[in-house]
């Protein structure tokens, strides 16, 4: 230590600090305001400190809460299915790119394009097409399909990075030792890319949970969380929505921590199995 810090250090520190404030500052305001006193409003100052807005949220037919409970369940259900499909399809797409095949580039670029086109028009387009076909949108096909156009490109990129880093000679070694393609996948490739596969699931879930632009017109009856929140926030008069913000953040953090703990215990169990051999 003791080296003199350059100007660029201070400039970059300032930019980083500004980033932190922009990211977490408003969130902390939301968290803080969710503990607003019963007499308080939707902005500062705080008038006392209470959990009354959380209680309102969990009271059946609470004022300003709308259909939030059901929309949470719907979002959860949709997210879980989208995450699972994203993981499975992403895995298959990634594996298919282990070998070059004609049309491979087309598949790749058309998937990337889906990250660029504005979501609202993707959603509108799907809805319009369904209309022309005389079909009614339902969450379990058009809703899921619309969200997959958003989550799959990310899954594909995750797989490309993970598989691109994997030494091809692992597969050749497995083949050399007699493994067929299924055994190769089961015993060698999957264990090596497992963190990435879990990553795809998480990316699928988070991108579905907060997505409304594509799903909005295609979900059929019954709002999801982001749709319900957008509606409620427009007409909100009490800090009850802030309580939703606090809880949903807590929920996402829990998801992340559970995932991390799961992968950690997976590694730990492997280690334990090895130590057991030692004894």
């Amino acid at each position: 230590m003791g080296t003199k810090r350059t100007t660029s250090f201070y400039v970059l520190s300032f930019v980083f600090a500004a980033f932190l404030i922009f990211l977490y500052g408003p969130m902390f305001c939301v968290y803080l305001l969710s503990f607003q006193g019963p007499e308080g409003g939707m902005s500062f100052p705080m008038r006392g400190f209470s959990t009354v807005w959380f209680e309102t949220l969990f009271t059946a037919g609470g004022r300003g809460v709308g259909d939030i409970h059901n929309s949470f369940i719907r979002s959860l259900r949709l997210g879980a299915i989208v995450a699972l499909l994203t993981m499975l399809i992403g895995l298959a797409v990634g594996m298919s790119f282990r070998r070059r095949y004609p049309g491979g580039n087309f598949v790749f670029y058309s998937a990337i394009v889906s990250m660029i086109v504005p979501g609202i028009f993707v959603g509108f387009g799907i809805s319009l097409t369904l209309n022309m076909l005389g079909m009614r949108p339902q969450w379990w096909y058009s809703g899921i399909g619309a969200q997959l156009t958003w989550s799959l490109p990310f899954a594909m990129l995750i797989m490309f990075i993970i598989l691109g880093r994997m030494d091809k000679s692992y597969e050749e070694a497995a083949t050399d030792l007699g493994a067929n393609s299924f055994q190769r996948f089961q015993y060698v490739i999957l264990p090596l890319i497992l963190p990435g596969v879990i990553g795809m699931f998480m990316a699928g879930f988070t991108s579905s949970y907060e997505e409304a632009a594509r799903a909005g017109l295609n979900i059929g009856t019954g709002n999801t969380m982001p749709m319900e929140l957008t509606g409620l926030l427009g007409a909100a008069t009490t800090p009850v929505m802030f309580a939703v913000g606090t809880l949903t953040t807590l929920f996402m953090f829990t998801m992340v921590i559970v995932t991390l703990l799961a992968s950690w215990s997976l590694a730990k169990r492997r280690q334990l199995r090895l130590t057991a051999h030692h004894a």
């Binding site: 030494d167 000679s169 692992y170």
Partner: peptide, 24 residues
């Protein structure tokens, strides 16, 4: 074949690596 980079499976112990073809 013995690969230039050895290609030992990083998630398996030396013993399980050696036993891989028998597991198959």
């Amino acid at each position: 074949m013995m690969f230039q980079s050895y290609a030992l499976f990083p998630h398996l112990s030396a013993l399980d690596n050696a036993a891989f073809s028998l597991k198959i």
